[in-house]
Design a protein around this nucleic acid. Structure first.
Length: 933
RNA sequence: GCUCAGAUGGUGGAACUGGUAGACACGCAGGACUUAAAAUCCUGUUCCCGUUAAAGGAGUGCGGGUUCGAUUCCCGCUCUGAGUACCA
């Protein structure tokens, strides 16, 4: 029979499901290997050809590892809480759980027909109560923990309470809020329970904090920074404003240093590590306190100094002014009556500008004098205090020392405000701009004059510490993560409020189920949708009304797969001890600073409290490239009045007409030629469309864009599978190019892969399509082809070069076809080798070869034998001055000296040398002969 | 602006540690089979010059360098993509 991919693929997908072929074992002597894909959000649009790219790669890898004798865990699930289902609910009233269920069914059907070897018995859904029970449980552990800097790990809050009871707050070195109290043990014990709780909240790893958030009134929710684009919500495009709210936060900053250090221990793409490093944004410098000069208006001040952070403390003698952010808490106090009007006007103007304007407007310099002064702590010079919006309240201390000779922004500000610019290094050139050099010797700098950068930095810090005006300090850009959304479709926070204080619900009450509501919108008074839930009340107080953010459920899911049905723990100790961590993680780089950072954070926390073993969750990570869409356009002719007509101009002729481009469905276009009949049938309005053709064809325009429904450039895997089968699709997606590279989708080459599989099938059959094999000894040539591909696939998979092994398979099949090979032993090994890529056809042939159904996935990968590839001759390229002129077959047993003699004696070589004696002959054994003339 | 990645035929791409540039596939051209089409098979296909299938020459974004030899290493630049940004 000819290659009937439809029957074969359906048959084996059914078989795998019925027999749970890919169920991973928890008790086995085999070594473990954990291959994980980033689980998808099940959107309503279903899968397009870009989605499975990473899944196919990981599936090939998982299947390959099984053949190599590993116990492979390769699970799949759904990150099923999220905004789209909720938006749909708001519009239609359909419960997000129903929408999600439908979408998952579509995803599952599409995934199944690609033939993945997932262990579906471990499926997880973040929106299912038996899953989010554990998300809530981990939240509770975070609430019950604090970060002990002395131990450099998270510890139980009860340990902190014990310390307070014994020693008061003395000797506690915690990552915590800034406004913690100092108290003795007796004072602690004298506090009311509520006061104690209030104090403890400042230490907990998840805590309440007033934060400025991106509030979107139209969506009725808070958005993350990456959900806001240009001041509008990414989804829906509604305006977003800044608003202060009490929010749950996660003290991820406690882990900043460990998150940074850990990057050096994991095998991740360098660009992605770099993104995380930038995000964490460690900078090493010093904090310096500038004492405030008693102001002219003679009022009593609460503050006595302004603290700044600087990475160039060595430049302190170049300070000619101080700048604080307009939002800085001391602004009002520092403003003298004479400057009050100016300052208020400036603040008002700043407020009007959105965050984005402020960034885009980086070139314009502005700022206003407060009227007050500080003293330079090292030389007591009077330094004026300004406010300016180039200083950000949210970074460092919200105040900087202005050193115009060394910092370009300070330079511009000094020019703008007519302030002094003092050179501080003898090498500095500051005639037109600041010079941030560290070379040279210091000048105008008191006791560091003549020193080098390194010496000066050390000397200044030593002096500042001596006079208690500053110290060396490390600053991080990363902020604590807000952990709450005012929306419905997420995990309820397992907390109730009593007398204004948060309390955890009892562990036995988990999961705290998401209640039913009549509408999915915020209440009229602006409370989150959960406020609509009738009778949803804790016996002792009011439940928290916000839900957890999207990243909560995905921050530990890889552990849940290890023991997906455990209702006592999120995963058992034994399961975690066996599976430990993810060996290979494949997913998109868009999660670089979100999911991949939060997951590392939670993992480190779970390790601190001894629930997991590894410090890092994902040992090796690969980012698959984005598959872009290839949009096609038709060009509508515009008439003299500027109105669109029903005539369309072919792409090559649009220069001669006035036209406007329109997206056209890519499924009506083949090789840029529009199928005119399909186009006319596409929409009623095009029924009578007319065309201006070139060479009798309508040629469409092309552009590379994101794949999206609205651009009509979505290529659906279902159509391709119907036409060519899953094995072809799998191999073609790999054949497209390197996995990590982004590329536009193009179906043009898929025929080549399909032909390849048919050719492979034909090897096992005679001309009449009857399965016919020979049991003879394999020939030398057959074994050579086979072992070449055995080695190649091994090498390629280990370095994730899937595209090159597909090419090599084609070469092997071409060679074996030429050899008319139908040798059972050769072909059986070939079936195993190819099975990771094209599992269905291989399963079918495996059974036809007389093997037991379903055993292929656990067969042994053929052992490579180098003996079959040994050559005794090599066609040496003979080059003259580096240009290849000819090839000569020379025995590989010859040594370089003998090769040189042999080559020089050759008649053709003599002809090329034209009687001349080469100056030098380079012979690299087994590679090349080069003669220098 | 900064950081990172990349640039190879008409197209997707290959060349792993410097050693025959263009594997494999698409497309295209020609041919075989066929009444015809589809399917299949065969041949050719980097460019220029040119011929009987010769012989040359150029060539991996651009300009230099190191080397017997560079797509690969070094320096400078151009362009493309991604991330990020008054971060003190």
């Amino acid at each position: 029979m000819d290659y009937q991919f439809k029957d074969i693929e359906q048959k084996w997908q059914q078989f795998w499901a019925d027999n749970q072929t890919f169920k991973a074992e928890d008790k086995t002597t085999k070594p473990k290997y954990y291959v994980l894909d980033m689980f998808p959000y099940p959107s309503g649009a279903g899968l397009h050809v870009g989605h499975p790219l990473g899944y196919i790669a990981s599936d090939i890898f998982a299947r390959y590892k099984r053949l190599k004798g590993f116990n492979v865990l390769h699970p799949m699930g759904y990150d099923s809480f999220g905004l789209p289902a909720e938006q749909y609910a708001i519009q239609t009233g359909q419960h997000p759980a129903v929408t999600t269920e439908d979408n998952i069914a579509t995803y599952r059907r599409q995934l199944d027909q690609i033939g993945f070897s997932f262990d579906w018995s471990r499926e997880v859904r973040t929106s299912s109560p038996d899953y989010y029970k554990w998300t809530q449980w981990i939240f509770m552990q975070l609430f019950n923990s604090w970060y002990n800097r002395a131990a450099d790990k998270a510890e139980s809050i009860t340990k902190l309470v014990e310390h307070f009871e014994k020693n008061g707050s003395a000797g506690v070195n915690a990552v915590c809020d800034e406004d913690i109290l100092s108290f003795t043990a007796d004072e602690w014990k004298a506090m009311s329970p509520n006061t104690q709780q209030e104090e403890l909240l400042k230490y907990r790893l998840t805590y309440l904090r007033e934060s400025t958030v991106n509030w979107c009134p139209a969506l009725g929710t808070v958005l993350a920074n990456d959900e806001v684009k240009d001041g509008f919500s990414e989804r829906g495009g509604y305006p977003v404003e800044q608003k202060k709210m009490m929010q749950w936060s996660m003290r991820i900053t406690a882990y900043a240093e460990r998150l940074l250090q850990g990057l050096d221990t994991i095998d991740w793409p360098e660009p992605l590590k770099e993104m995380q490093r930038n995000w964490i944004g460690k900078s090493i410098g010093a904090s310096v306190r500038f004492p405030i000069e008693k102001p002219a208006h003679n009022l009593e001040l609460n503050a006595h100094y302004i603290e700044v952070f600087t990475t160039r403390v060595d430049t302190i003698f170049g300070t000619t002014f101080l700048v604080i952010a307009p939002e800085h808490e001391l602004v009002t106090e520092l403003t003298t009556p004479g400057q009050k009007a100016d300052i208020e006007a400036y603040i008002a103007q700043t407020k009007k500008k959105s965050e984005l304007d402020r960034m885009a407007d980086a070139k314009t310099v502005s700022g206003t004098f407060t009227g007050s002064y500080v003293l330079n702590p090292l030389n007591n010079e009077l330094v004026p205090i300004y406010i300016a919006d180039y200083v950000l309240a949210g970074y460092g201390t919200g105040a900087v020392m202005g050193v115009p000779s060394g910092d370009q922004r300070d330079y511009l500000f000094a020019k703008h405000s007519n302030l002094n610019i003092i050179p501080i290094l003898d090498t500095q050139n500051i005639t037109t701009e600041a010079d941030p050099t560290k070379e040279g010797k210091y000048i105008n700098s008191d006791f560091i004059n003549g020193l080098t950068y390194k010496e000066a930095t050390a000397a200044v810090i030593a002096k500042l510490e001596e006079i208690e005006a500053g110290k060396a300090k490390v600053n991080f850009r990363m902020r604590d993560a807000i952990f709450g959304r005012q929306r419905y479709w997420g995990e309820p926070v397992p907390v109730y409020f009593k007398e204004g204080l948060p309390h955890l619900i009892s562990e036995s009450d988990l999961p705290l189920l998401l209640p039913e509501v009549d509408k999915y919108l915020p209440t009229e008074s602006g409370e989150p949708p959960l406020a609509r839930a009738e009778g949803w009340k804790h016996p002792d107080g009011e439940y928290e009304l916000s839900t957890m953010p999207g990243w909560a459920g995905s921050s530990f899911y890889w552990y849940r797969y290890m023991d997906a049905h455990n209702d006592k723990e999120f995963a058992s100790k034994e399961a975690i001890a066996y599976w430990k961590d993810v060996d290979l993680y494949i997913g998109g780089s868009e999660h670089a600073t979100g999911h991949l950072l939060y997951s590392r954070f939670w993992n480190k926390f779970l390790k601190d409290i001894d629930l997991v073993i590894e410090e890092e969750p994902f040992k090796k990570l690969i980012n698959q490239g984005m598959i872009q869409g290839r949009s096609n356009f038709v060009y509508r002719l515009i008439d003299e009045e500027g109105r669109g007509t029903n005539t369309f101009v072919s792409h090559g002729l649009i220069g001669q007409y006035k036209t406007s481009p329109l997206h056209v469905d890519v499924n009506m276009v083949e090789n840029e030629v529009l199928n005119i009949n399909k186009f006319k049938a596409w929409r009623e309005e095009y029924k009578n469309a007319e065309f201006i053709l070139e060479n009798g064809k309508y040629i469409c325009g092309v552009e590379i864009e994101k794949m999206s429904k609205s651009k009509f450039n979505v290529v659906n895997p279902d159509d391709l599978i119907a036409r060519y089968g899953a094995d072809t699709l799998r191999m073609y997606e790999m054949f497209l190019g390197p996995l990590e590279q982004s590329k536009p989708w193009n179906t043009n080459g898929i025929e080549g892969v399909f032909k390849f599989l048919r050719k492979f099938w034909r090897l096992f059959h005679n001309d009449a399509w009857v399965f016919t094999l020979s049991d003879a000894e394999p020939t030398k040539a057959e074994l050579k082809s086979l072992h070449k591909i055995i080695r190649k696939v091994e090498e390629d998979i280990e370095r994730f070069s899937f595209n090159t092994s597909v090419s090599s398979f084609m070469i092997a099949i071409n060679e074996l076809t030429d050899l008319k090979c139908n040798n059972r032993r050769v072909l059986q090994d070939l079936v195993i080798t190819l099975s990771a890529y094209a599992p269905h056809i291989c399963e079918e042939l495996w059974v036809m070869l007389g093997n037991e159904a379903g055993t292929l996935s656990y067969a042994a990968y053929p052992k490579f034998n180098p003996a079959y590839l040994v050559e005794d001759e090599f066609a040496y390229p003979i080059s003259i001055n580096g240009k290849t002129k000819m090839n000569l077959n020379i025995s590989l047993s010859l040594e370089p000296k003998e090769i040189e003699e042999f080559v020089l004696a050759n008649a053709d070589v003599k002809k090329y040398l034209d009687g001349k004696q080469p100056k030098k002959v380079i012979v690299v054994k087994g590679r090349i002969v080069n003669m220098v003339v």
